[in-house]
Design a protein around this nucleic acid. Structure first.
Length: 552
RNA sequence: GGGCCCGUAGCUCAACGGGAUAGAGCAAUAGCCUUCUAAGCUAUAGGUUGCGCGUUCGAGUCGCGCCGGGCUCACCA
């Protein structure tokens, strides 16, 4: 409809001799009295044309050629808005489309199978996933879902590093706890990982190797401990992610960048371009010549690279694999790496515009009105696994998706656990379950099968004339636009808030109108509306990764 | 000190490339279940959008300067 009106307005502008290069924007007015779609073209043109915006609006309305079966009314309001009122027949006529598309309703092909990678979580296997990772997991997976829904070809990728100093600490911590199982007085490294999970891993090392590691070669033993711990931690991570319904297509090991020579290549290319140089025994990246605030070390004097180098190499690899769109989901604490990576890939000749970095702010847990204190050092953090245990996967995902990623997120544990109307997850799920219940009832009355058939419903939709019915129907027809805009703006919270509106509109409809009634045609039309509502809720929840129960 | 994010109703948050009277939920108050799920609905109340300038037909949104909170500025990742 938007596109249709855009064309019509463009035609009108042309015939009036107004500049046609302006963006003809339509939006949904906040208030119903301002119509269903509104455009501010007249206001936008006022300056360049040098006329009163209302005059321009009147000109446009005078010559615009719209079919009356779709448009009920066109009005000029306020300073020069042109408000279009769509006919109820227009809305009624589209109800069968929802039923016909069913599970696919909301999908589109605007993405054109564009090869896309979404990288998220990417935690190293040194410990359990935190609550912060949870937000990232929900965000990344939902962005991936959204992009898939609008026709992108999406790869979900997890990048990790199982070498280096952190893994060394993991190995030493594990071994120390293992030793302590035999001799409680054995020392624990000062900078070791404090968490209890290390003790659990150590016990499993003991179960597997008994005391045989106590006097074996230290380096070999540490290597054994490292791999053992890594495997356990990774399995745990995958398990937790699976609890949230997340499955990665690719686990990308940083190590492969060394093995296949990508790292060396990047350094060589940087040197060739004068972007890398030696100083104080280290290799530096000349970010200052690329507009960055300072040069940074990419290879330490010890010969080890800093994280920047593999990060840049990794992104080069992404480009080489042919991704047309690269979405990186990072926590706010990683924000410092981004300028280097983007400048690096750009310097290597790739289009940095294809990289979209989504930064999400931190999560604070609230319990009984007080912030849950978390310290990684003291190992008093709440793990994602524990959070899921406490409030369930649906609440975890939904709560993480409710807010804009740029906003700090306060996670109210009490609210998330509450099985009542206060809890927004239940509010949505309840609407879905309620519809399912109505449909079961309708079926028991023997009239649901017919209402599932778009063709049979087509001639009956004109019975839906109540304000609550039409308001609901209008909202349902917005779904594809919402999916598209949520995806393209990388803002899943638009979808959560939209679904909340749908649930509200449905509940209102439910309270005003009885569905299963003797008037058969009206009953069928209303059942169709229920089905359509259920489709939108189910599809929306599917994108969010939240279950849509049939009963509650 | 530099960079990024945030500051909107008592609390948690919306407001899609500036748009019309700034919206929801929770909390508060008053109502609604013999009828398809009350985990629901209706109504009332709640605001100088942190402060001040500026840009323009129009600013919560853009620019500048303050104030307050978070993150970050390693030869840690």
């Amino acid at each position: 409809m938007k596109h249709y009106l855009q064309e019509k307005v463009a035609d009108a502008l042309k015939s009036l001799g107004y500049p046609s290069d302006v963006a003809i924007a339509f939006e949904k007015p906040k208030q119903d009295i301002h119509g269903d779609l509104t455009s501010n073209v007249a206001l936008a043109l006022a300056r360049s044309v040098g006329k009163n915006p209302r005059t321009i609006a009147q000109d446009i309305v005078r010559v615009i050629d719209v079919e009356s079966e779709h448009i009920a009314k066109v009005e000029i309001a306020g300073p020069g808005f042109i408000n279009f009122f769509l006919s109820k027949e227009f809305y009624q006529g589209h109800l069968p489309d929802i039923l016909r598309q069913s599970e696919s309703y909301g999908r589109s092909t605007v993405g054109g199978r564009k090869k896309t990678q979404v990288e998220f979580v990417s935690a190293n296997p040194t410990g359990p996933l935190s609550v912060g990772h949870g937000r990232q997991a929900a965000l990344g997976d939902t962005l991936a879902n959204l992009l898939e829904w609008i026709g992108y070809d999406v790869t979900r990728e997890y990048y990790y590093n199982n070498a280096g100093r952190q893994m060394r600490r993991l190995a030493e911590s594990t071994f120390a706890r293992y030793q302590q199982l035999f001799d409680p007085a054995a020392p624990f490294p000062e900078d070791g990982y404090q968490g209890d999970y290390i003790r659990e891993i150590a016990e499993r090392v003991r179960d597997r190797f008994k005391g045989s590691l106590l006097h074996a070669d230290r380096e070999e033993t540490l290597e054994t401990c490292k791999r053992f711990a890594e495997n356990i931690l990774f399995e745990d991570i995958k398990l937790v992610l699976k609890r949230l319904g997340i499955i990665f297509d690719v686990f990308f090991n940083e190590d492969s960048l060394y093995k296949d020579g990508t790292i060396d290549e990047v350094v060589k290319d940087f040197r060739a371009k004068g972007l890398a140089y030696d100083r104080d025994g280290a290799v530096w990246f000349r970010g200052s010549s690329l507009g960055l605030d300072q040069d940074r070390v990419i290879i330490k004097s010890t010969g080890e690279p800093t994280y920047r180098l593999p990060d840049i190499a990794y992104h080069r690899d992404k480009f080489r694999r042919g991704f047309d769109l690269i979405v990186d989901v990072f926590g706010a604490d990683h924000i410092a790496t981004i300028p280097d990576v983007l400048a690096g890939v750009k310097a290597l000749g790739f289009d940095a515009e294809k990289v979209n970095v989504i930064i999400h702010q931190f999560v604070t847990l609230m319990r009984d009105g007080e912030q849950v204190k978390m310290s990684k050092r003291a190992a008093t953090f709440v793990t994602l696994d524990e959070l899921i245990d406490e409030v369930g996967p649906d609440a975890v995902r939904f709560f993480f998706l409710m807010r804009a990623s740029s906003s700090h997120l306060e996670f109210d544990l009490n609210l998330a656990k509450e099985q009542s109307e206060k809890n927004p997850v239940y509010y949505l799920q309840y609407a879905h379950a309620r519809i399912a219940s109505i449909l079961r009832f309708a079926e028991s009355e023997g009239i649901s099968a017919e209402a599932a058939d778009p063709l049979r419903i087509k001639d009956r939709t004109h019975h839906l004339t109540g304000a609550a019915e039409l308001a609901l129907l209008k909202l349902l027809l917005e779904f594809p636009d919402i999916v598209e805009s949520s995806a393209l703006s990388y803002e899943p919270h638009r979808l959560t808030s939209y679904l909340h509106d749908v649930a509200t509109a449905f509940h209102r409809f439910y309270h005003e109108h009885r569905v299963v009634i003797p008037e058969r045609d009206l009953a069928l039309a209303r059942i169709a509306l229920c089905r359509a509502s259920m489709i939108v809720l189910a599809n929306g929840l599917k994108i969010l990764g939240v279950s849509a129960p049939e009963r509650m």
